[in-house]
Design a protein around this nucleic acid. Structure first.
Lengths: 149, 149
DNA sequence: TTAATTTAAGTTGTGCACAATTTAATTTTG
DNA sequence: CAAAATTAAATTGTGCACAACTTAAATTAA
């Protein structure tokens, strides 16, 4: 491939990732709209649902580490979820710098409405279980490499 | 896997795509900043550079089809690139609904500064050529499937 | 050939994502 | 201990991405 070929859109992995992420979002949007959530808000709820049994309180900082997002993104997003009464935001009395996020009852209850979303989205991919897992492994490798460079 | 496992972040392909796209963007940003471009602006320039020899004029509509973006995204983006004198926006006299985008001389010249970006980004992935091509094929399949459902 | 429909851009408003900065609290260090 | 450094959130500003809508031009159909 010459230099010009590298600059062509069709040869670029990153454009595929970019397009696929947008497409993924378009499939999620109508489904999540029924729960009143955006995709990013859904990710926050996934973390909270996942930890609710063992660790029902999590700081904004910890949430940011799990989702790779900073307070500039999370602060307004969490305020919107608080306004929807899905979670509470309270300063940690042990360390007033930190804000503790907890699910409310209705935030907990929303989980049942989300149970079938992963299966629904999986069917949209048209992949087999093996193909999905193979892709997950490859993308994990890529994430690991790109996170350390 | 039970229902709860499906709702875990670590099991979700979409979260990997989402994280990887953000990570990709973070690697591009400092490189593209030297050219005064964002990633989306870079994509527009790629299309214009690619077509400049054969088709030096392209409509906003055609650009949107290539990049899968609508006028709501492209109109302001193209105005910013016009303000940077990288391209011109002129109404098509044959069809006044359409706006024709053309590279300016400095827009053409910027191409040389972008020549080494693909190789630079490829090295960040840590992939072999074969691995890259394999991944491209898989993502193309996924894009095709998800575009028709 | 006028009226109805379609099309192309642009505009407005919402919600990320992130850089850069600010504020306040905590920790470290001289 | 007090000053300096670090840390956690929040704020401000920019630029997407997209839904919903508007405007103006072109096409189609009555």
């Amino acid at each position: 491939m010459n230099n010009d070929a590298h600059l062509k859109l069709e040869n670029q992995l990153c454009f595929r990732l970019y397009s696929l992420t947008k497409l993924m979002n378009r499939h999620y949007s109508p489904v999540l709209k029924k729960l009143g959530l955006t995709y990013s808000q859904y990710l926050v709820m996934l973390v909270l649902w996942e930890n609710n049994d063992t660790t029902p309180a999590i700081s904004v900082k910890q949430l940011g580490e799990k989702l790779d997002l900073d307070s500039g993104t999370l602060s307004p997003l969490l305020k919107r979820l608080e306004k929807q009464a899905l979670l509470s935001r309270v300063r940690n009395s042990d360390d007033e710098r930190s804000v503790v996020i907890k699910l409310t009852d209705s935030g907990c209850q929303l989980k049942s409405q989300a149970q079938n979303i992963p299966a629904q989205m999986f069917s949209v991919t048209g992949l087999s279980i093996d193909e999905l897992q193979g892709l997950n492994v490859q993308l994990d490798g890529l994430l690991a490499t790109m996170n350390t460079k």
